[in-house]
Simulated assay, not measured.
Amino acid sequence: MGKNVTFRNDGGRELQTVRLHGRVDVRTVGDLRLRLHTAIDCGRGRLRVNVAGLELADQAALGVLLGGVRRARRSGRSMVLVDVPDDLGRLLSANRLGRFLQVEDADLFHVGHA
């Protein structure tokens, strides 16, 4: 499970992007949780979690992502999933989790004024 972190300034607001990749199942979900919680705890502002490289073997990752949203909110942050793969998108839809996990396309990111 890998992690790349970048920070940007979005019109005066801080923005953190984390790229998670690798296979997630019940054996590796602890690593995903640790990496996500570290990103939340060590940053400020909006957290964008790029999940394009995640391979989901089961639904174990959903609980971690939901827990990440709750942890981010308790820290005064927001969290959004970016570049959601089709299999994860179907899981979110089937479990009606779209109301808890915000999703956006990576190419919709905009900095500055329109």
Score class of each variant (00 low, 15 high):
G76F: 12
G45D: 11
C42W: 08
G76D: 12
G67I: 00
D41Q: 13
G68C: 04
R71G: 00
L54A: 05
R70P: 07
D58K: 01
V69A: 13
V69D: 06
A39W: 08
A57S: 14
G67E: 00
R70A: 15
V51Y: 07
G67T: 01
A57W: 10
T38A: 14
G76R: 10
G67L: 01
D41C: 07
R44I: 03
V64D: 04
L66H: 03
G76M: 13
L66G: 04
R48G: 00
V69H: 12
R74I: 00
V51L: 10
R44C: 06
R70V: 13
R44S: 13
A60I: 06
G43R: 10
A61D: 13
G76Y: 11
L62W: 13
R46G: 03
D58Y: 03
I40M: 06
G45N: 12
A57K: 10
L66N: 05
R73V: 10
D41F: 01
G63W: 02
V49M: 05
R46M: 07
R70D: 15
D58F: 03
I40E: 05
I40R: 05
A61G: 14
N50E: 15
E55R: 09
V64I: 14
V49P: 03
A60R: 09
A72E: 06
V64E: 05
D41P: 03
R70I: 09
A72H: 04
A39S: 15
A72K: 04
D41K: 09
Q59W: 15
A72G: 05
R70M: 10
G43I: 08
T38F: 00
L54I: 11
R44H: 09
N50Y: 08
S75L: 05
G63K: 01
A60P: 07
G76H: 10
V51N: 10
V64T: 08
A39Q: 07
D41I: 04
L66T: 02
S75D: 11
E55C: 01
N50C: 15
V49C: 04
G45A: 11
R71V: 00
G43N: 14
R73A: 14
T38W: 00
V51F: 09
A52D: 13
G67K: 01
G53K: 07
A61Q: 11
L65H: 00
R71D: 00
A52L: 11
A61H: 11
A60D: 06
G67W: 02
G45V: 08
A72D: 02
L47S: 01
G43S: 15
E55H: 05
G76Q: 12
D41T: 09
D41V: 03
L56I: 10
R74Y: 01
R77P: 07
I40H: 02
R70T: 14
L66R: 11
R44D: 09
G63N: 03
A60Y: 08
A57C: 09
L62G: 10
G53N: 09
L47D: 01
A52Y: 08
R46S: 08
R46V: 11
L47W: 01
A60Q: 11
R44P: 00
L47R: 06
T38C: 03
G68A: 04
Q59E: 14
Q59V: 15
L65I: 01
G53A: 07
L47Q: 08
R46K: 08
C42L: 14
L62C: 12
I40A: 05
V49A: 02
V69Q: 13
R73P: 02
G68N: 01
